[in-house]
Design a protein around this nucleic acid. Structure first.
Lengths: 163, 163
DNA sequence: ACGCTACTGCGACTGAGTCGCATCGCACAA
DNA sequence: TTGTGCGATGCGACTCAGTCGCAGTAGCGT
């Protein structure tokens, strides 16, 4: 439950909220990037970015909208879509809709997400897991694979062992 | 009333239809497999498998339903879901819903599908494109990657060159 | 502080996907 | 071949994610 209540990081963000600093930093840099790109920094957008940073896994627009009762559903949908267009967030098609997560990380540590088709959990994988495939396909002029946007599916170790 | 009239690979497929023999064979073996698994072979299922084989790319339940006006929408949805459960078809989450394709191929030539995020086309890739990743993740006990079910996303060569 | 215009809230609308139930017909046995 | 049981289908209403157009609001540059 994100619940970024009325005092939406009002003016100055000196007061660290309930979420950890890493998330706060990510939101800060995302907001800065937003501004640099000529986009307006509004309260709803701050709220969406905050919620996005608070979610450790991917979040769907629907989930975000539920977590942000003060932001209109349509606005959440438009916002995440715009964020994805700008590259501030990345999207991934999962069974229950399109899921988003922040692409901007101050530390810059990238990672991939895979979904277990049995328990539906999201597993974090090393960023370079698909490196060989990317290079091979690129060299063969077949496809410019973008691991961030891909949805890897399979079985997590837990589910695989209980087969 | 289903009424998928006579031209539906009735008994013998001596009359070459609009689709090639490979597709017909795939349908035949899929039907056989269906029977072996204790499932009933019905006219609607034949029709869905036929349509599935005729589609060279992935097809969504919606597309299949549109292509099969005599089969009820709900039946198409239930059928493809069941086929996926049985492993006769594989599913993939794409932007416009869940897409399916036949997993049973008589020739056994497997391949992967990737989606271009720009033109939304499906590109066919060599089956072993992710082999390295599969092995690496498996050896590291991180994830049992199943390339068939994964949705690879990126840019096809056409769109990449017009960037 | 002002004005432009991008962004938001709103609520109706669309269409994919689901569900319960009555009926049908496949598969197997006699 | 006919009979029978139960799984599959047709049906149509229902749910709900996602979209759209419009009017009002508020961010940002001046």
């Amino acid at each position: 439950m994100v619940h970024v209540h009325g005092t939406l990081t009002h003016g100055k963000d000196s007061h660290a909220e309930l979420h950890d600093h890493a998330s706060a930093d990510a939101v800060t840099s995302a907001l800065a990037l937003l501004h640099e790109l000529g986009e307006r920094v509004t309260a709803p957008r701050r709220a969406v970015l905050d919620a996005l940073a608070a979610e450790h896994a991917h979040a769907t627009a629907e989930q975000l909208a539920a977590a942000l009762p003060d932001v209109h559903r349509a606005t959440v949908y438009r916002t995440v879509e715009r964020l994805a267009e700008l590259g501030i967030a990345t999207s991934m098609h999962t069974g229950g809709g399109t899921a988003y997560h922040l692409a901007v990380t101050p530390t810059g540590h990238e990672h991939l997400h895979a979904r277990c088709r049995a328990c539906d959990r999201i597993v974090v994988l090393p960023a370079d897991s698909l490196q060989t495939a990317v290079e091979r396909l690129g060299r063969a002029r077949l496809f410019r694979l973008e691991p961030d946007h891909s949805e890897l599916v399979g079985l997590c170790e837990d589910c695989a062992s209980t087969d």
